[in-house]
């Protein structure tokens, strides 16, 4: 069961990573509607990703919260804290970043509904992009050091 949840968490985070990266590219470098791969990537409608990103974020975090219990008691307490404390530190920052990103979700949703606040929308999307990448990389690093 733990393995299934961990895999679902990883797949969900990968989908989230793709969606938020795609949206951020379209926000920072909007492009024409036709052309090659790069131009097509920039030409997507970023507002169409909002619901998917919110659902994927909440789902990924919920799965992470469930598998956090065995991680905390079996992996972190027995190995990481004693042998690789820097990995615990990275994971602690990952937890905080995920919690703050979850807190940002209502503002993110509201900013994408209102075209007036373009700068804040771009900034919040960028923070979510950075948090998602950070959490994805740290999750993999820690799992490679000592997985569930």
């Amino acid at each position: 069961m733990k393995l299934f949840l961990l895999l679902a968490h990883a797949i969900s985070s990968m989908l989230l990573l793709g969606a938020i990266t795609h949206q951020a590219i379209a926000v920072w470098m909007p492009g024409p509607t036709s052309g090659g791969f790069w131009r097509s990537l920039r030409a997507v409608h970023p507002q169409r990703y909002v619901t998917a990103i919110i659902v994927l974020f909440v789902f990924t975090m919920a799965l992470g919260a469930v598998i956090y219990v065995p991680f905390r008691s079996e992996v972190r307490a027995t190995y990481l804290d004693a042998h690789v404390p820097w990995a615990t530190g990275l994971f602690e920052v990952k937890e905080h970043a995920a919690a703050l990103a979850l807190a940002l979700m209502p503002a993110y949703w509201a900013l994408w509904r209102n075209p007036e606040h373009r700068g804040s929308r771009r900034a919040v999307t960028t923070i979510l992009l950075l948090v998602t990448w950070w959490n994805f990389v740290v999750g993999h690093v820690v799992n490679n050091l000592r997985g569930l």
Binding site: A97, L100, V124
Partner: peptide, 15 residues
């Protein structure tokens, strides 16, 4: 609205 991302950035830094 700018306060939202400023507070988020400062919170990440502080944590």
């Amino acid at each position: 609205w700018a306060l939202v991302w400023i507070v988020a950035s400062l919170a990440l830094l502080a944590l």
